[in-house]
Nucleic acid binder design. Sequence first.
DNA 1: AGTGTTTACGTAAGCGCTTGAGTAGGTAAG
DNA 2: CTTACCTACTCAAGCGCTTACGTAAACACT
Lengths: 351, 351
Amino acid sequence: MSSRSTIYEVAQRSGVSTATVSRVMRDVGGYSAATRDRVRASAREIGWVPSGSARGLASRRSGIIGVLFPDLGSSGETEEESPLYVDQVIRGAERAATAVGHAVLIAATRGTSGRELAYSVAGKVDGLVVMARSLTEQDVDAISRSVPTVVFANRSSRTRLDSVGADNRGGMAAVVTHLIDEHGYTDIAFVSGPSRSPDSVARFAGYRDALVAADLPAPKAPAAGGEFTEAGGERAVRELLTERRPQAIVCGNDEMAIGALAVLGRAKLRVPGDIAVTGFDDIASARHVRPALTTVHQPMRELGEQAVIVMLARLREPDAPRRSIVLPTQSVIRRSCGCRGRSTTTRRHTS
Amino acid sequence: MSSRSTIYEVAQRSGVSTATVSRVMRDVGGYSAATRDRVRASAREIGWVPSGSARGLASRRSGIIGVLFPDLGSSGETEEESPLYVDQVIRGAERAATAVGHAVLIAATRGTSGRELAYSVAGKVDGLVVMARSLTEQDVDAISRSVPTVVFANRSSRTRLDSVGADNRGGMAAVVTHLIDEHGYTDIAFVSGPSRSPDSVARFAGYRDALVAADLPAPKAPAAGGEFTEAGGERAVRELLTERRPQAIVCGNDEMAIGALAVLGRAKLRVPGDIAVTGFDDIASARHVRPALTTVHQPMRELGEQAVIVMLARLREPDAPRRSIVLPTQSVIRRSCGCRGRSTTTRRHTS
DNA sequence: AGTGTTTACGTAAGCGCTTGAGTAGGTAAG
DNA sequence: CTTACCTACTCAAGCGCTTACGTAAACACT
């Protein structure tokens, strides 16, 4: 197992200098085909793999992009975990990074352990993508002084950093407008996620936008809050129903909407007959749940890709002007809003 | 942004040698409290983060564990993507690694680009976790000569490497036995995943185990195959139904089972009234689909954790005997098999 | 033949840390 | 007063690469 040979052995074995070995391994040219083959063969024979650390030190580029995301599981309520979309974002980041020969380092911040972890990661990477709710604003500020940083779905407006995110506000406004225009609902309750989540805040704002645009009264605060979890959604809706029975319940995400569906089912209220429900995110289960959930699709994968694309651009041009990317979302109309067809109507929009 | 200062500047600023700065940063002791604070302060002031590359080079440990997984999306059929469980495994790995101050580097192999990528990753990490179907056996062999390797859910029996995986065979045998014993089915068809997938093969073997144990005829080959995708499951079951109508359809994973449900619904066959269906993996949608899917739960997160635990042990003791960990699975009895209750009966078992 | 250009290398100086060996000064034990 | 042993450091030699810079030989062109 792992003897860890060095470039010197390979150089000696193939009768060339280490510089030549290095050139061959990096595929940069400046050597004959014969030399190339000889070097490659020697390397293979002794099972040599160039040390990433040595490379990184000498070239001052590690070829690694870090992604920091929150793992809410270990801190807050026991049930809660990282939002499902995190995985998709990571996948997108991985894809974009691998495409240009970079690797992705992932680390979840849990509770207060964030700062230390972030610094440890920062030292290992060329750039850092920081997802919402993984670090405090001050920590992001501090970190971004030592390593190029892109913020993801974060309170991006206040910062001088590159950012990428989805059009949460516009997406939510679109479904709520659908509820109003197509179905004629006027009494629409909003079940929000955690108030510290920028996504949650933006979605509530979108909900209000739609109501205001339709000249309906727009509540100052959500009717209930559910922490973005299924259980939280159940709780919130149960509570909500003790007070009133709106025509529609708009949830801040799909998990909560699924929780809502369960509660309504138990209360013998038919969805969408008695009450309509919508979600946000378009997770896999949204399609499978009955009735199928009307929701808003976020291009998570693309967002992850964009994050590293922006990152790479920043690394190439450190002084380029700040970029802030907002990707459009899509309404996915299924049955829980009252629409008949099983068809999936989509529409694009940006704010 | 990112000026990238060095340990020398910090040493000078705080009036100590670089060795002392290094010790302070690594928390190893051998300095006074006053010195520690001075160093920490200087570091903070200039926004210095120790270079991971330099650290790695000097200490010959990068503190990074690599995870290689397959992204089937870009190669085979366009629809297909990495199995869903990959994300869970990665999360588990991340959790276990972070707990001991390591980071996780992820990389998806797509099509034939695997080898190169793997080598690039191998150079950057202390150890590598290789998931099933991400690399050919030869590549795994080659890589494992230069970096400690743990294989995950792989044809582990044939290798000299540490491995971790779930008890696919035992889990499948358990549900099929349930179908036979509790429901009295004797005509049970198996819809398999890709034949190159070790998981798929093991599950078919478990299916046969159960039939053999019950003295029922055990087919030599699956009744149909579906590539582990929802669409593939639909195709396979559609095909299967043209030939015969078994009492139960046992699918190699949940996605295919969900596809099966859709096809059966369209064919006006009631599940489980006319025909029972089971899956494997217990993905989120299995709970939400109607009827709720009877399936087998795999502890993906724990498996990911185990993989890095085994890895770390190997790094600590390179010459320890090989370890092969098989985690038990759990039957999750829902309604699609014919059981009444909405309760989730679980039972443990190991092969 | 003389000159410029290209190809295919080699030389050696770092990159920014860690770490083993060494040391000064203080304290405790004999 | 020694001698031994801490504690709190410093010194400097690497770790294994990359990359300016240099150069000899081959080739092209006048």
